[in-house]
């Protein structure tokens, strides 16, 4: 089916360590699918395989029928798959606008010659895409910082720029690796709003790694739970939250306070109050 992401039998081994072990799940077009699990469960590794950064040891990943595991990252990007990074991966010295313009790379053409000679078509292309990038910046709430070098902006803003850069790729599938990690309650709320609106307005599929159960419950249609590289549960968020295997995995991960279902519900209550 078009735009459906199917992961099946995915295994990734690093020297002596199995980071992903026979993992499978499906992301339906236009849905939000959350991948949760304690630290080190293999969530980022999964993203790295989906975006072509890591090679799968075994298994397959298809998007709209195209096999991704053999493609280079830029070819996967060309299919309309965008991602953000858990640890911010922006160019610190470039302006916010230029960082977002990089997201337009796959949608634009200007090469050494046409950019160097400032050919009319390169200039027109640049103007057109800058306008769109500014709209996206407004949408995500970083429109006031367009000219600032990214490195001078606070962490929370940089996280939003990561999201904006992903959206600037006009993706069909957006992979978000812990988009609200390290943010406070208000910032989380705003980020969640942006994600909800992006999905509603743009109709894209979103695959989300997140620890904050409150957020997962609110955003996701489907949840896949990983623990030590294995898929231990999956299904609608309400079911997953009650799954004994999930509770065990999270209670075992005491070093990750926001990950516990108990703390997540507390936080939800605080937000409601």
């Amino acid at each position: 089916m078009r735009d459906e992401l199917i992961v099946s039998g995915l295994t990734v081994r690093f020297a002596g360590l199995t980071a992903l072990d026979d993992v499978g799940f499906t992301v339906a077009p236009g849905s939000v699918h959350a991948v949760i699990g304690p630290n080190g469960a293999g969530k980022s590794t999964c993203f790295n395989v989906l975006s072509g950064v890591y090679r799968a040891t075994e298994g397959s990943v298809t998007f709209g029928g195209t096999e991704l595991t053999t493609l280079a990252p830029h070819r996967i990007a060309a299919l309309g798959i965008a991602r953000t990074f858990q640890n911010i991966a922006l160019s610190r010295h470039l302006s916010v606008e230029d960082n977002l313009m990089l997201g337009r790379h796959r949608l634009t053409k200007a090469g050494f010659l046409s950019a160097g000679l400032r050919l009319p078509r390169a200039r027109r292309e640049d103007a057109r895409h800058r306008a769109r990038v500014r709209d996206i910046a407004e949408f995500v709430g970083v429109g006031d910082h367009l000219a600032a070098p990214v490195g001078m902006l606070p962490y929370g803003v940089q996280k939003r720029i990561e999201l904006a850069r992903g959206l600037a790729m006009e993706p069909r599938l957006l992979l978000l690796d812990e988009p609200v990690a390290g943010m406070n309650g208000t910032e989380r709320q705003r980020m969640a709003d942006v994600i909800v609106r992006a999905r509603a307005d743009l109709g894209i599929s979103i695959l989300l790694v997140e620890h904050d159960m409150g957020m997962v419950m609110r955003l996701a249609d489907e949840v896949t739970v990983l623990d030590f590289g294995k898929r231990i549960a999956g299904g609608p968020p309400a079911d997953v939250q009650r799954d004994p295997a999930v509770l065990r995995a999270y209670l075992g991960a005491a070093h990750e306070p926001t990950a516990g279902t108990a703390t997540a519900t507390e936080e939800e209550e605080r937000e409601r109050a």
Partner: peptide, 20 residues
């Protein structure tokens, strides 16, 4: 221009450049 942004990102964060 467009090539410069790609070049700068290769310098600053190669993986980010490739997934973009």
């Amino acid at each position: 221009g467009r090539p410069g942004r790609a070049m700068n990102t290769i310098r600053d964060h190669e993986v980010a450049a490739s997934v973009m």
